[in-house]
């Protein structure tokens, strides 16, 4: 029975470790949640409960515009990245070893490179090309760093796809385009969707590359927050992030506990 006892103690230590890490990860998020209800503007004094920051949030046009820009850029950049990236993945998958590894090498550059270098290099390029910094340059930058995430999500699914199903479709009279959309695409769809989600998340969270490629007149949430740091963050920001957190959490719980289809 001693072995069982050791197993039990081991489990307790493991649980304790998991909890410690979770506290570390969620402490700042909990702090934001508390501050979003703090009627004092100070970040360290509790001035009583208020919902004012939540109502302020929706009447603040700066925050709402930044939120709109952030979501629009995230959506458009992921969509375009999915189209370019999926096409590229299909092409790369059909290539010989040498061109394939060259293209995959290029794909890896923005993922492994430091954001600050990617940001600066894009800024230099936009100025050299004569593209004025603004919404369009942020969008181009986000598409650029999103494409690799799409390719890396789609590639494994393409490799799993049985080549003969595509050939079977052609054999049964489908054109190559309709064979692709009817047979191959449904197979890789999970990869395409997860690529889209990953790209969307990366775009939402990006600050550094946006910081260098945005013009003076436009803000995303990240750059707005950064510009407010010196003056002091409006607690409405905390309210917004708390709302986003709750939304993501609920979404996660729904997808996790919804009845799953069996494979």
């Amino acid at each position: 029975m001693t072995n069982r006892k050791i197993g039990f103690i081991k489990r307790i230590i493991q649980d304790f470790y998991l909890v410690i890490i979770l506290v570390f990860l969620y402490a700042p998020i909990a702090t934001m949640g508390v501050l979003s209800f703090n009627s004092s503007k100070s970040r360290t004094q509790w001035g009583g409960f208020t919902m004012n920051w939540y109502t302020d949030l929706f009447s603040s046009s700066t925050i709402m515009t930044a939120l709109y820009n952030t979501l629009l850029i995230a959506f458009l950049s992921s969509l375009i990245a999915v189209i370019i990236g999926t096409a590229a993945a299909v092409a790369i998958n059909s290539m010989d070893r040498v061109p394939r590894s060259i293209l995959m090498g290029i794909t890896n550059i923005p993922m492994l490179n430091a954001d600050i270098v990617t940001g600066i290099s894009l800024m230099l390029a936009f100025i050299a090309f004569g593209i004025s910094l603004g919404f369009q340059t942020i969008l181009i930058a986000h598409i650029t760093f999103n494409i690799p995430y799409v390719i890396l999500s789609v590639m494994p699914k393409l490799k799993q796809t049985d080549k003969s199903t595509y050939e079977a479709a052609m054999d049964l009279g489908a054109t190559s385009v309709s064979a692709f959309f009817n047979v191959v695409f449904p197979d890789i769809l999970p990869g395409v969707l997860s690529g889209f989600l990953l790209a969307f998340t990366m775009s939402l969270d990006d600050f550094i590359i946006t910081h260098f490629t945005r013009g003076a007149g436009i803000n995303t949430l990240s750059t707005l927050i950064y510009s407010e740091v010196r003056r002091g963050i409006k607690p409405s920001m905390y309210a917004l992030s708390t709302i986003i957190f709750i939304a993501v959490l609920v979404l996660l719980l729904i997808t996790n506990f919804a009845p799953k289809r069996k494979k």
């Binding site: 998020i29 950064y226 920001m237």
Partner: peptide, 27 residues
């Protein structure tokens, strides 16, 4: 999922929250 969930929060805000925790008269 629980461990990567914090990544969905804006990374500037999370880092700023640490400011609040670490400050001289912070949490």
């Amino acid at each position: 999922f629980i461990f990567i969930l914090p990544m969905w929060m804006n990374f500037l805000l999370r880092t700023l929250a640490w400011q609040t925790l670490l400050e001289r008269n912070g949490v």
